[in-house]
Design a protein around this nucleic acid. Structure first.
Lengths: 258, 258
DNA sequence: GAGTGGTCTAGACCACCTA
DNA sequence: AGGTGGTCTAGACCACTCC
């Protein structure tokens, strides 16, 4: 009839995926809705089940849907992100007595909590030593490994490196940091006031152990943030690596141009 | 013999994937090396080809390897990231005559370049209007859509929204912004000097069209950055959305604590 | 043309969830 | 028990690359 030339022969798996994607984008399949089962789709489109399965995989890879074993495949709900802002370290929140993460959670109506996985004294990786400007003779750091939760969800895996010279004889070696303002209160008592922060941000797919710790569904990347605290003398005194699940958390920077 | 109890019955696909992952991590399979073919793996492990294929998919999803049609599957090489720092807007680089992106590329020994995809006058999305504090009567913006390249690779898809009131009668409506310091030089002539920036950062898997523009291999997430420029009066005057491929680029913030 | 990855078929069994 | 996703088999044809 018209000038329209179908020409574009679609792969069956792409066709099914596109149809589903359209249904999701138009709202026909609302967030949380269940998709037709793989067997159902295969029947409707006259394909093998594996082909319908491949279609769903295409959507799951993009994070659009999430499969739950024995239950079905569901359109993913968007959770509002918890945004960690550079503001979280601001001295004006000092009196709140909350550590930066708990502060951000509270601001955003979530209940924050953290679990200490381990606390060790080790020789730091070369990269950490370089950023903390540790000389060969001072290569000893306290490492605290935490998982941060927002409500029930684990959202960050957090590794903090503190030069041993600063950490020794403080509460930092104990799991319970009973200090208002969290560990930063302790740093201040030791004479290090945070006056700058330097954070480098990357994104990538999680490693196997990160996926476990963070209970990450497939198709969700992580933000990988290396945070360095700089004191009033321009000296770095603490380095923290955040691995954050990107479907629940983000970052926010509000800074002057110098 | 010993106390070792295999007990853990491994799925064949996981076993193949784990073996390959180990070979990659130990360096036995160096970056750039070719993996055994799917048919080869299937033969060695006595599985169907689809099972070997599934194993490779597990690695590709994590971004560890990259399949090339007709050639083979290769261990991904790590490219050093180009880090966009907040520093890139610093006035001290003004004389260089380079726009922020070209500046960062130059700093890192890459050749930067950009292509203009489109320039239009439109009514902005509600979110953009809100962040630019546009009243109902001023809801008109100039939108410039660009792709940034570092050497040969497209690395950022960049969408800039400028209130029409600021953009009209400037070089901004032309594809060639022949102004030193790029578009920010033009903003300064119109009386807007960047004194703060606000950037919110998320990571996610790319949408289909983003994957096309950025020629993204599967398993590579994007950084999604919303940048807002704030002038000397505290007024936002420009909003740019960066969609950055996360395997080649990252961010860097160095800011004072207030 | 030979070898590679990309896709598909038509079955099968398992693990998990709901009832 | 019946339905769901998770995995696997043993084939097949196609599209792409290299020689």
């Amino acid at each position: 009839m018209g000038t329209q030339q179908p020409a574009e022969r679609q792969l069956p798996s792409r066709r099914i995926a596109d149809d589903l994607r359209r249904a999701i984008e138009t709202g026909e399949l609302a967030p949380g809705a269940r998709l037709p089962s793989e067997r159902d789709l295969a029947g409707r489109y006259g394909t093998a089940r594996n082909t319908a399965r491949e279609a769903i995989r295409l959507l799951a890879d993009g994070g659009l849907v999430i499969a739950e074993h024995g239950r079905g495949v569901f359109v993913r709900r968007e959770s509002p992100l918890i945004r960690l802002g550079n503001d979280r370290y601001s001295h004006k929140y000092r009196e709140s007595g909350l550590s930066p993460f708990l502060l951000e959670c509270a601001k955003q109506g979530k209940t924050g909590r953290f679990e200490v996985l381990s606390i060790e004294q080790i020789e730091p990786p070369a990269e950490v030593a370089r950023h903390l400007r540790l000389s060969m003779s001072e290569r000893s750091v306290l490492v605290r490994e935490n998982v941060f939760f927002a409500d029930a969800d684990p959202v960050h895996r957090v590794t903090t490196y503190i030069p041993w010279e600063i950490a020794e004889d403080t509460g930092l070696v104990n799991p319970e940091v009973g200090h208002p303002y969290g560990i930063h209160g302790i740093f201040e008592e030791r004479g290090h006031v945070m006056t700058r922060l330097r954070e480098s941000v990357s994104a990538r797919m999680p490693k196997a152990d990160e996926a476990r710790y963070l209970q990450l569904p497939p198709g969700v990347p992580v933000l990988d943030v290396m945070h360095i605290s700089i004191d009033q003398h321009g000296e770095p005194y603490e380095l923290t690596r955040f691995v954050m699940r990107a479907d629940l958390t983000g970052l926010l920077y509000d800074t002057p141009i110098e």
